[in-house]
Design a binder for these strands. Structure first.
Length: 418
DNA sequence: TGACGTCAAGATCCG
DNA sequence: CGGATCTTGACGTCA
């Protein structure tokens, strides 16, 4: 089983992709950004390897305007060396990657121009995986498209247009149920008819389902048979509804208790789970740790070192509870740890606890800083205490100091990003 | 015509 | 002038 995350990282340095607007998209600018983004992709792959993450979705933003006619840069030739080095890393680490054209890539449109652009976009995404030298287990996920007041015709159009696609596109293409139009039963019908693997998305299914008679497990098992040996293990998407947000919005983090219920329901090892969640790799590491039967306490201690000041500034009592939980090195439980962590991070920190957190972090510097820096810090802190500002200027200043004095422990923590 | 989703770029505001 | 905060962009469908 692999558990992965989509497109970008949270709290990892040098992993931000660049982009540009259409009016600035010269060949030079596109080449420059592509070079940067490939460097970033390489860093993300390194991060994944170092954190035992072996499922990842590559961002469609890798190449600016990758499927547009205005991009005339032959990036797959110019950067062939960089691409194959990244591809080699992916292969040698047994990582599985994917790409996912979004809701605006519509293969079944009744507008020929939209279909033409959709095919260009599929060609672009396929080229990413091809240029990395990856096999057919590395997939491209697509939704079926619109309904146009006649679903039957719209499905027929999808089928006809699919048949016209180049073989190297078909080689990777898989289809997924969406949250509004095509439910899992309809997507499965298409998948079976065309011999395309089907991705089950639990949240889309919750919102847009056939009926409540068949269980999630039933549909996941139905999808399983669409995955052939050369496609690799069945892949599914998992996400949770964000509280107090529009139906279908992804949660900020994966609630570990609900995830474990889902995981235990699957009761299988030959399945890969792509998480769709705002905190990306953070939830991914959480889920990996909680499903690892051989987890060592050092893995949780490492996690705690990154989150501790975020908890401290929100809730001192949760901070103490988690610290106590980790003191018992023989009998620890990853789910209990993350459940407490979620509770702590959900707490609303008051002025006192936020100040307490900032002072703890200040402790890293107090013997190194100049008088001026000390003065600046306490000025920011005083402004916050007197409600003249929020906590951000205080934390931003601490971040600056952390960078200046190269405090690796703080820079690797999530204190400055949450 | 706006909502939908995404998030960096670009624009503007603030001290 | 630098940093913080708000708006735009780029895509297609549907109400």
């Amino acid at each position: 089983m692999k558990i992965g995350y989509a497109c970008k990282t949270v709290g990892v340095s040098n992993t931000d992709m660049k982009s540009c607007t259409l009016k600035n998209a010269s060949s030079e600018r596109i080449t420059e950004i592509t070079k940067h983004n490939l460097h970033v992709l390489n860093n993300i792959i390194d991060y994944n390897i170092n954190n035992n993450i072996n499922l990842f979705r590559i961002s469609s933003d890798l190449i600016p305007f990758g499927s547009s006619e205005i991009n005339d840069v032959k990036w797959w030739e110019i950067f062939s060396k960089e691409l194959s080095l990244i591809g080699d890393k992916i292969k040698s680490s047994n990582m599985r990657v994917s790409v996912h054209p979004g809701q605006y890539t519509v293969l079944n449109s009744n507008n020929n121009d939209v279909v033409r652009r959709a095919i260009d976009d599929l060609t672009y995404h396929t080229r990413i995986l091809d240029s990395l030298g990856l096999n057919s287990q590395h997939k491209m996920i697509l939704h079926i498209g619109g309904a146009y007041n006649n679903k039957k015709l719209a499905i027929e159009r999808f089928i006809e247009n699919y048949k016209k696609l180049e073989d190297n596109i078909k080689y990777r293409l898989v289809i997924e149920n969406d949250d509004k139009i095509y439910n899992i039963e309809e997507v499965l019908d298409i998948g079976i008819k065309l011999d395309i693997p089907v991705i089950f998305d639990n949240l889309h299914h919750e919102i847009n389902n056939v009926n409540n008679i068949c269980s999630e497990k039933y549909w996941i098992e139905q999808c399983k048979s669409t995955w052939k040996k050369e496609d690799g293990n069945q892949k599914i998407h998992y996400s949770q509804q964000a509280e107090n947000k529009r139906i279908g919005s992804h949660s900020d983090t994966i609630g570990i208790k609900d995830f474990m219920v889902f995981f235990n329901m699957l009761d299988r090892d030959d399945i890969d789970i792509m998480l769709e969640v705002k905190d990306k790799n953070l939830s991914c590491v959480k889920c990996i740790n909680c499903t690892d039967f051989n987890i060592k306490i050092i893995a949780l201690e490492k996690e705690w070192s990154k989150y501790k000041y975020n908890v401290l500034e929100r809730s001192h009592s949760d901070y103490i509870k988690i610290r106590n939980l980790l003191k018992n090195k023989e009998d620890f439980n990853a789910v209990s740890f993350y459940t407490l962590l979620e509770k702590g991070l959900k707490s609303q920190g008051d002025i006192g606890s936020l100040v307490n957190g900032a002072l703890h972090v200040w402790g890293y510097f107090k013997n190194k800083t100049s008088e001026k820096e000390k003065h600046n810090f306490f000025k920011y802190l005083e402004n916050f205490q007197q409600q003249k500002s929020n906590i951000n200027p205080v934390k931003n200043y601490l971040n600056k100091l952390a960078q200046k004095y190269n405090e690796d422990y703080l820079l690797k923590s999530y204190y400055f990003i949450m």
